[in-house]
Simulated assay, not measured.
Amino acid sequence: MAKLDEKGWWIKKNGESVHPERVKIEDKLKDEMIDSILGKAAGVTEVIKKFKEDAYDEVDSYFELLLDKYGVETKKGVKGFTLENFSGTAKIQVATADNIIFDEKLQIAKKKIDEYLHEITQDSNPDIQQLISKAFEVDKKGEVNPRKILALRSYDITHPKWLEAMAIIAESVEIVASKQYIRFYTRENQRENYKQVSLDIAGV
């Protein structure tokens, strides 16, 4: 329903108040339709929220049984796991994604990398130099991409300054938040690829 002022008049987008009798019938019908659909959407959201909570509870209960069986007291440190059914036609994946930022030591690491690049300029691959430089590019918010920064550690480089820079990067990592995800997959048989069960209205 459109917002109303203290007199019960309909408030337009520009803030102007309009007497109910002067509101077009199609606008009233449109508002009723939108309210109806959004009301149903809110109900669906609650159903999905409850389903998600129940799914986590059931998976956690099963995992607790495994911990108990093997004498492990806690699942602390477990970032993710996959549960697959007996026939290999359905699976559930639970994963944890960390929201990572870097403290001021990242700039020190960048200086070390610059020193390394300066030392080996003549012998280095220009493509590698470009990849390293791109890793430190910032977005519109002035933030680097953690995935690109952490990917630098996978490079097979043994130069002392590079290794020192990688160690500093590891020290600069700060995990500010973690979010857990649960995803569902099915397939008809093991010869097919798994397809994710979509809980996103756009993907249905």
Rank of each mutant, 00 (worst) to 15 (best):
M1Q: 04
A2V: 00
D5M: 07
D5Y: 03
W10G: 00
K13R: 12
N14E: 10
E16I: 02
V18K: 02
E21G: 01
R22L: 08
D27F: 07
D27A: 07
K28V: 08
K30W: 02
M33A: 12
D35M: 08
D35V: 10
D35T: 04
I37E: 11
L38K: 14
A42S: 13
A42T: 13
A42R: 14
G43H: 05
E46F: 11
E46V: 14
V47E: 14
K49S: 15
K50E: 13
K50V: 12
F51Q: 14
K52W: 08
A55W: 03
E58C: 05
E58F: 10
D60Q: 07
L66H: 05
D68Q: 07
K69L: 06
E84K: 07
E84W: 00
N85R: 04
N85S: 08
F86T: 10
S87K: 12
G88N: 10
T89A: 06
K91T: 03
K91H: 04
Q93R: 05
V94Y: 01
V94W: 01
A97V: 14
N99I: 12
I100P: 00
I101R: 01
E104P: 00
Q107W: 11
Q107L: 13
I108P: 00
A109W: 01
A109I: 00
K110F: 02
K110C: 02
D114F: 05
D114L: 09
E115Y: 08
E115S: 11
Y116N: 04
H118G: 15
H118Y: 12
T121Q: 11
P126G: 08
Q129H: 09
L131S: 12
K134S: 07
F136E: 03
G142E: 06
V144C: 07
V144A: 07
P146E: 07
P146R: 02
K148M: 10
I149E: 02
R153A: 10
R153H: 04
S154H: 11
D156Y: 08
T158K: 13
P160F: 06
P160R: 01
K161P: 04
L163I: 10
E164K: 13
E164S: 12
I169G: 00
A170E: 15
E171W: 02
V176T: 15
K179G: 05
K179E: 15
Y181K: 11
I182N: 01
F184K: 02
T186H: 10
T186Q: 13
N189L: 05
N189P: 03
Q190A: 09
R191T: 05
R191L: 10
N193E: 12
Y194Q: 05
Q196E: 14
L199K: 14
I201S: 12
I201C: 07
A202E: 12
G203M: 13
